[in-house]
Amino acid sequence: MGGYGDVKLLREDGLRLDGRKIDEMRPIEIEAGTLPGADGSAWVKHGLNVAVAAVYGPMEAHPRKIQRQDRCVIDVRYNMAPFSTSDRIRPGYNRRSREISKVTAEALESVVICERYPRSKIRVEIEILSAEAGTRCVGITAAAVALADAGIPMRDLLVGVASGKVEDTVVLDLDKAEDNYGQADLPVGILPNTGEIAFLQMDGDLSPDEFNLAMEYNFKAAAEIHDIMVDALKRRYEGGEN
């Protein structure tokens, strides 16, 4: 969070620079099963963010030392394509993407019924093709749809969503400018059916009341995104069984 106080992020009429209300999300489109070679896959466009996720597995966990005798491990790679941001990202080792991969994997391990696949590994590949603030949340949403598409058993469909604070006002779903010049960012991964939280990060400055309001926005948005995820999965398999 930059926290530069001199950048105007809210307009006189109370709307945000891109015309959204303070509790309004950017538009979201989701498609399931977009990569023919993967066991499960998803494409998510959220504002100007574009994330693609693929799932491979369950497969035997290699090397042996990462195997768990009683469950599977989830191996997540979150990666930003070199052309996804305005300044090119050098490919290769990157502390930020390593951290996001780690916490995303742990969030997914909390919803996947891992005990079903001892000694196995499920590979989740998240590629950000276009970035406009909030890519880790878009990545989580894409990964959840891809896991469902792959037929992996899960307790719920994990939804990634973020709220934040700009000009001392709590707002839902920060865009690029709000992320750069705002005062706080609170990305979470929500299980919409159980109301639990599997992913949590935050940076910036929030009062306890502001935190509660931001979480309220996040839960409301998660329910909306969940409907879009379910719709994407249903569209992929429309036609029905007999």
């Binding site: 919803v111 469902a148 058993p153 899960m154 307790r155 719920d156 469909l157 299980l191 919409p192 059916n193 159980t194 995820m229 379910v230 999965l233 249903k234 398999y237 029905g240 069984e241 007999n242």
Partner: peptide, 18 residues
């Protein structure tokens, strides 16, 4: 596969759905 419910309404569910 789903003998016994032919004619019944088919319901597609997603993980977490009641």
């Amino acid at each position: 596969m789903s003998q016994g419910q032919i004619g019944a309404e088919l319901r597609l569910v997603t993980p977490g759905m009641a």
